[in-house]
Design a binder for these strands. Structure first.
Lengths: 131, 131
DNA sequence: ATAGGTGCAAACAGTTTGCATGTAT
DNA sequence: ATACATGCAAACTGTTTGCACCTAT
């Protein structure tokens, strides 16, 4: 039913080997190093298939294009550094989520994103202020 | 510097009077009831100005177009009902957020979105299962 | 041999921008 | 009077789709 192609393999490898979520064009750029004449449509077709199958999760930040990461990295959330733009995984989950949801609502999934300065950028800001 | 126009007033009224976040086209549809020949570009120009001024917050859900809500409703988060598509405000915040952020990271903002069934839809699902 | 995958280009949705005109100050 | 706001259409970005060709099975 589902055929094994060099394009699909290349895209999968990019996703599996990258620790942080990637956008479609970032995935294409990396996969092209293996299959140079790959098209963006092929990337999207694989991404959508894997999303449908639950093997991939979309990661979205306001004003930024959608990124994708493999599922099964264990439950985690994301930290977006406002200074350098990098995305970090924060393992685990916040306490007290259940008690936050009002009675009557039935939560099935959730997403938590934290914005601020990553350790590297925070240190630099500190140094700048010291001068 | 900033001029008072019927379009701007109409858009502002739509946003202020709506309890849940709205997309640009939803805002246009409602504002057109007051100023019928308004264009979508005008809506975006006002939205972007207010976003820049911090009077408006973007609310985004994966795969859905961006919505907007006025700031100053007090700290809250959002619940998206997967069944009816409606968005609900959840007042307050989750406990233990600070202890969740690893050492070194400096959090400045955060966003929490919960997906599931709203009270109305949850009740219906229950009833269906009973039949 | 054939169903399914691929590349390309065209189509689409959401948003932004250039420009001539309109209007609040 | 003039600077800013508006409406329209064109441009742009990210994503999807139609189609002829290709390829893993």
């Amino acid at each position: 039913m589902t055929r094994r192609t060099k394009q699909g393999e290349a895209i999968k490898n990019v996703l599996v080997n990258c620790p942080s979520p990637l956008s479609a064009v970032e995935i294409l750029a990396r996969a092209k190093q293996v299959v140079p004449d790959m098209g963006l449509a092929t990337v999207y077709r694989h991404l959508n298939r894997w999303l449908r199958e639950g093997k991939l999760t979309p990661v979205e930040f306001p004003g930024e294009t959608c990124r994708f990461e493999t599922t099964g990295k264990g439950h985690h959330h994301h930290f977006l550094c406002r200074d350098c733009g990098r995305v970090f995984d924060l393992p685990g989950c916040v306490a007290g989520l259940h008690s936050f949801v009002p009675a009557g609502f039935v939560p099935r999934q959730h997403e938590l994103t934290i914005y601020g300065a990553c350790p590297t950028c925070a240190r630099q800001t500190e140094n700048n202020h010291a001068n």
